[in-house]
Design a binder for these strands. Structure first.
Length: 905
RNA sequence: AGGCCCGUAGCUCAGUUGGUUAGAGCGCUACCUUGACACGGUAGAGGUCUGGGGUUCGAGUCCCCACGGGCCUACCA
């Protein structure tokens, strides 16, 4: 490794180099035969047509942090990547491509089209996986899966057939959500409801054999062409006399019955509902109850068909206009009101969904949902954050059957064959030669494919080779956790749980962590179509992937959405740069040491680092005891935070340790020793510093893999050392905790800060070193200061620090600015210009604050109820604190009095 | 309609079981180009936790109400 190290961290080249190396060396290949406790995660499969967006970046950052953390802690770790085949999206992409070449896909035929899709996949379907590789995600790329792979396809067929055999799959004519643009049925979940300002038309239908009219209210007048009845509430006295009679459907001149049905809301509109069983789910149900005809008045692309009479050929929205016009001309529109309603739109293409009667395949969900509810209730699966459980239960308990057939050419073909002779359906794992019922060979394969999510639901086990009992399945299933966005809870989390339980008898994962959404600076949901999405690749290039990972992790508080701003990213980039420069400090200073004949290998070889902390004459310097203690504490905190998916907390403690403890204090404290004259001390100081630094890199590695890998390799390593990611995570060594050292160090830091503060208030020239005086309240503090005089003087920019004799001595506020604590007082002598006014103002403010605090505590402690009811510990703490504060207040008041009495300048 | 979440420093957000003087990052102010780092250093200003009521010895934290914002589910035409 080159000793030259640039002044600022430039991530681009470094990230590229390591990403490639990790991938090419297959560094993260899992070994199902290896021992060890297992940690496994399957990626929530991204859409194969997609490219990485900021939501993936967050998701994958969290996954990769957990994966790297576990791997370093010795778990047998698997992170399995892959993509799903995204039926509708992919078909659309390829159809468009063909159209651009002047080819109509229907003309190609199904087989030929499928070939084209595979060609497209080979060429362009790898965007997101390439991006993941570039991001350095520690996946096992040898196990990459795709939902249309032969193995996974086999799992899909197996599941379909078994569900069918268990009576959980049926086929029938029902109202489904139909997308007239994608030309397929879609499920309820793929139908997104949107609030619209629409109209409510009140239409007059003449009652046959009477001069009366019945007024119906509708939001979709064009569907009246398919009306086959109208309904009123059975108890609605306004209309009881008309039940059983007929109305003459205007425009169509069709007589349709008036029926009574309690589903009608008397309060809404006129209390009369037109019934269009082929275009509305409620009407469909009502139609069944009353034996009404089902007249489909539209084509599959939502134009009016022959059943719509003279409106045939019109688009549904044109037809609406025309129908209203014609009815108006006939005087049959009583009135029009504004009306807000929820319109279903296609999740993929945003076209208004048409509820449409058609023959589809469905999965019965209730029997699958029950065990899935139980698994979460019993805690076999943990959902984090917990409040999402409510949503899960709510949805699961009201679950509706799942329409799984799609009228597409790209996807898993439904394994069903229709007999040309007896019309029976044969469902089978392998293409049957003859009809299961009549033996006829006139079989036609069902044209439909399955919903993409059907295969996604099997992902946790289909990727591991199920239905074979493979070594992977035995070792890595159930997986440890599923990390995904809360918006996807029902799409696959719930379905994976149902399918996992049904087909493996086990939960698919032991925990579900649902992270938040990344929002724009305005707090809006990012949207590709609105152009408000952030391209993470672009940000990674500009600021570094590590910085992006870190900022996402540090903002990823469970249950809170992330508002990403450039300022925050800059902060993370600065952190990366800080670490880089800490390394730079070590490496450039080392040259000076090497000049004396000490080698880097002697100071920082792996076995040397492993033997830390190193002692001098059996003793360890206070600052060293302290930093090793902080390291152990920080490690414990990181472990605890990550175990609970508290990424933001983990990121925060690492940040504070590295910057606040290590850079600000540990390095500063030790500086002179590193180039001192005492050879043995130099060696010990360096060894300890390197040991802490290297451990800190490992601590940080899950969050910032590239930077830490690069710096780790710049340290001397054993021959053949491959990667920091394969090194053990720091241990939380309780024996390294040294509360005494932490307390002592805190006291010394307090002295330094007090001195700096006094200097700053006095507006002393920062370069001017002054002789300061300190007094102590206890002999131990004196010893502590004496033992650490050099760093104290240096870090507080003093010329000297004189320790006043005895204990509890008050320093003279006339001589300089005095700062105090219960343990010490320090006096920084006034400079040439004495600004006693500022000093007085400062002290007054401080006094007020203290006085307020003393007063409130006094009141609390005088309260008999508090003393009797609060825990003794709390009372005791408050008493101690109050005593200290009183002394402080007393000191402060005296100082203030003296200053105020002195002549003002 | 039902359910969930949020409202804490100028901004974006932490604050696990209620318990000392409520934290961070960025921004801001002053000073510092000190030989790791100006993507830096040092010091500092700045919130009484949306409002009201309640429980409690004690509430940012628990309960109720109001206001403001967001999200999800739902077949009211």
């Amino acid at each position: 490794m080159p000793r030259e190290i640039p002044k600022a961290y430039e991530p681009q080249e470094i990230e590229q180099r390591w990403a490639r190396a990790w991938y090419e060396e297959r560094l993260y290949r899992a070994d199902a035969g290896a021992p060890g406790e297992v940690f496994s995660i399957v990626i929530p499969p991204p859409n194969v047509t997609g490219s990485l967006h900021i939501g993936h970046m967050l998701d994958h950052t969290e996954i990769d942090i957990l994966v790297r953390w576990h791997r370093m802690r010795g778990y047998n770790t698997l992170y399995l990547p892959g993509t799903d085949h995204a039926g509708i999206s992919t078909q659309r992409v390829v159809v468009r491509q063909l159209t651009e070449k002047g080819i109509h896909y229907r003309g190609l035929g199904r087989d030929e089209f499928e070939k084209k899709v595979w060609e497209w996949k080979a060429e362009s379907g790898g965007t997101i996986t390439r991006q993941m590789i570039a991001l350095g995600e520690s996946c096992d790329w040898t196990r990459e899966r795709f939902t249309m792979d032969p193995g996974l396809s086999r799992a899909v067929r197996e599941v379909f057939v078994r569900l069918f055999e268990d009576g959980l799959i049926y086929r029938g004519r029902y109202i489904v959500n139909w997308c007239p643009h994608c030309l397929t049925a879609i499920s309820d979940l793929e139908t997104v409801h949107e609030q619209r300002n629409g109209k409510l038309w009140y239409l007059r239908y003449p009652v046959v054999g009477s001069s009366e009219h019945l007024v119906v209210a509708t939001t979709r007048p064009e569907t009246m062409l398919g009306d086959t009845g109208i309904a009123v509430h059975p108890d609605d006295e306004r209309y009881t006399h008309l039940v059983g009679r007929k109305v003459l459907l205007p425009l169509m001149n069709r007589e349709i019955p008036i029926v009574a049905d309690s589903f009608v809301d008397r309060e809404f509109g006129s209390g009369v509902v037109k019934l269009t069983p082929a275009h509305d789910p409620n009407d469909f149900e009502a139609g069944k109850r009353h034996g009404l005809a089902e007249i489909d008045v539209m084509t599959d692309d939502a134009k009016m068909n022959a059943a719509a009479g003279k409106y045939a050929g019109l688009d549904r929205f044109e037809a609406r206009k025309k129908v209203v016009e014609d009815l108006t001309a006939l005087g049959l529109v009583e009135r029009v009101a504004d009306h807000v309603n929820a319109v279903g739109t296609c999740d993929r293409c945003k076209t208004d969904v048409e509820p449409r009667l058609s023959m589809q395949w469905f999965v019965k969900m209730k029997p699958l949902a029950e065990p899935a509810v139980a698994a979460v209730e019993s805690g076999q699966i943990r959902i984090i954050p917990e409040n999402r459980r409510t949503e899960y239960f709510e949805w699961m308990r009201n679950i509706r059957d799942w329409c799984v057939s799609r009228q597409l050419w790209w996807g898993h073909r439904i394994p069903a064959w229709h007999c040309g002779d007896c019309a029976e359906i044969t469902v089978a794992r392998e293409t049957p030669a003859e009809c299961a019922k009549c033996g006829s060979a006139k079989l036609t394969a069902d044209p439909d494919v399955l919903d993409t999510w059907f295969s996604s639901a099997l992902w946790p086990f289909s990727t591991m080779g199920w239905p074979e009992q493979t070594a992977d399945l035995k070792k890595y299933y159930p997986t440890s956790a599923l990390i995904t966005g809360y918006d996807i809870l029902f799409f696959w989390v719930a379905r994976m749980i149902m399918m996992g339980l049904k087909f493996t008898g086990q939960v698919p994962f032991r925990a579900v962590y649902l992270h938040s959404l990344v929002r724009t600076a305005e707090g809006a949901k990012m949207s590709k179509s609105k152009g408000t999405g952030i391209d993470p690749i672009d940000l990674n290039l500009r600021f570094g992937t590590d910085a992006m990972r870190f900022v996402l992790a540090s903002m990823a508080a469970p249950g809170t959405d992330i508002v990403l701003s450039e300022d925050r990213i800059l902060g993370a980039r600065a952190f990366a740069n800080k670490i880089w420069n800490a390394a730079r400090f070590l490496l450039v200073n080392l040259e000076k040491v090497e000049a004396t004949g000490i080698t880097l290998e002697e100071l920082a070889a792996p076995e040397i680092r492993a033997a830390a902390p190193h002692r001098r004459d059996g003793k360890l310097d206070l600052a060293e005891r302290w930093i090793f203690s902080r390291l152990a504490a920080t490690t414990a905190e990181v472990n605890a935070a990550l175990a609970e998916y508290r990424f933001h907390e983990a990121a925060h403690v690492v940040y504070h340790f590295f910057w606040g403890d290590f850079c600000d204090w540990a390095i500063e404290w030790v500086k002179p020793r590193l180039t001192g004259a005492d050879r043995e001390d130099v060696v010990v100081a360096w060894r300890n510093l390197f040991a802490v630094f290297e451990a800190a890199l490992r601590l940080l590695h899950p969050f910032m893999p590239f930077l830490t890998e690069e710096l780790w390799h710049r340290l001397p390593q054993a021959a053949g050392a491959r990667s920091i990611s394969l090194q053990p995570f720091p241990r939380a060594r309780p024996e390294a905790r040294d509360l005494g050292a932490e307390r002592d160090m805190a006291l010394l830091q307090e002295i330094v800060v007090a001195a700096r503060n006094a200097r700053s208030e006095l507006k002393l020239d920062p370069r001017r070193k002054v002789a300061a005086e300190v007094s102590v309240s206890a002999p131990a503090t004196r010893a502590l200061i004496e033992a650490n005089l050099e760093p104290l003087v240096r870090l507080a920019s003093l010329a000297s620090l004189h320790i006043a004799p005895g204990e509890g001595q008050r320093l003279d506020p006339a001589k300089g600015a005095v700062r105090s604590s219960p343990d010490f007082e320090i006096c920084i002598p006034f400079g040439d210009a004495i600004d006693s006014k500022a000093e007085i103002a400062k002290l007054r403010k401080e006094k007020e604050r203290l006085a307020r605090d003393v007063e409130s505590k006094t009141t609390r402690l005088e309260d008999a109820a508090f003393r009797s009811k609060a825990p003794g510990e709390v009372v005791k703490t408050m008493e101690d604190t109050l005593a200290e504060r009183r002394v402080e207040l007393q000191k402060l008041s005296e100082r203030l009095k003296q200053l105020e009495a002195a002549p003002q300048e």
